[in-house]
Design a protein around this nucleic acid. Structure first.
Lengths: 199, 199
DNA sequence: GAGACTCTAGCACGCTCGTGCTAGATTCGT
DNA sequence: ACGAATCTAGCACGAGCGTGCTAGAGTCTC
């Protein structure tokens, strides 16, 4: 029926369809057929863009990581160091539908990595990316370059973020995310030093 | 060709086969056929004990939760409060092959809960159980009954445990788990020590 | 207009899946 | 010894899976 579609746009559409299927029916429901149906195309069209299932999944995972990276990079600056850090860190929590989807996809990646070795490197890349971000935040807050104590603080922050993310995902029904943010804010203040008081 | 096998023992064997398949090939490789093969029985025998796939998975998940609970309950007592708490908390981290398997199964549960609604209640039960354990540990360490500040400390500890668990799972190749335990120990000391209630 | 290219549509193959079903082997209760 | 209960073994069915393949519709280039 058509020709010269925007190939990249189509890829993005299909990747988003993958995410939606993961959210709705779980990772093991992701097949070329379910994804094509979700995207409103026939299997042949999907396979014209992604010849194999593995390519579809790899692209979907990479796009997710890329989206998250861009979103963090585009975070607005704030005068207060702690506020700025909190604004960045909030993007790692499943507070919005899209960030929630990202986390579900991320968990699906971890869960399926034994089956799809291609995905482990993407998972590791995302993991290290978040770890580096935590380290940079810690450096900014403490106002000094990294040292062993700061590395540990960053690791602790990283663990806290991932743990809270899971808890927010599980306690989806409840509306109050405030406690999680408060815990994080407290942690950021603690890294920043003794002087700064909680707002 | 036998009769009157120990039905419960067989169920446990099959559940352990489920875990092994999850670890080796991921959650979506779990089928009655793969599990039966892993357990060294034919599909008919498996289905004699677990008529449907859902029953197999539900039992496997419940057994995992039960095992973890028992393991924590059986943890030896220590004179020092912090040491005692640390000994309990260590059981929640993937430091040994079996606890590692438990975490992988747990993640698989979260990842597949959209597809298998029966599993969400088990997942929630496990989640609340760990949350309660953290609260009890916090009460013991602080030496006072729960109050809002202590509840928050417990939630923070809970998040830290889950986050560190994931990190240990991902950084499987590296042998040093020391940093994670040190971070936890620090947190336990902090709960037990002077409580600066950040409001 | 004609041919080349791109994309859609879908058939077909061999595989695995969950599950209903039967038949045979083994052991128990009597 | 014999029927009954229990367990093993496996066939069969319909469904869904990934993927190779062809046919045709649409659009671009010349």
């Amino acid at each position: 029926m058509a020709r010269t579609i925007d190939r990249d746009a189509r890829k993005v559409e299909l990747a988003e369809a993958v995410w939606q299927v993961i959210i709705d029916k779980g990772i093991s429901a992701v097949s070329v057929r379910t994804v094509a149906q979700q995207a409103g195309v026939v299997v042949g069209s999907l396979r014209h863009v992604f010849p194999t299932r593995a390519e579809l999944l790899v692209f979907s995972a990479e796009l997710m990581v890329q989206r998250a990276t861009e979103r963090v990079r585009a975070a607005p600056g704030y005068p207060s160091k702690v506020e700025h850090a909190l604004e960045i860190v909030k993007h790692f929590l499943p507070l919005e539908p899209d960030t929630r989807a990202e986390l579900e996809v991320n968990i699906a990646l971890i869960a399926e990595s034994p089956a799809l070795p291609e995905l482990t490197s993407i998972r590791d890349h995302a993991y290290r990316g978040l770890g580096d971000a935590c380290l940079q935040i810690a450096e900014m807050l403490a106002g000094r370059p990294r040292d062993p104590a700061l590395v540990r603080s960053a690791r602790r922050l990283h663990a806290l973020i991932d743990g809270l993310a899971i808890h927010l995902l599980i306690e989806a029904s409840e509306r109050d995310n405030v406690w999680a943010i408060e815990i994080l804010q407290e942690e950021l203040v603690r890294i920043g030093g003794t002087e700064q008081s909680v707002h």
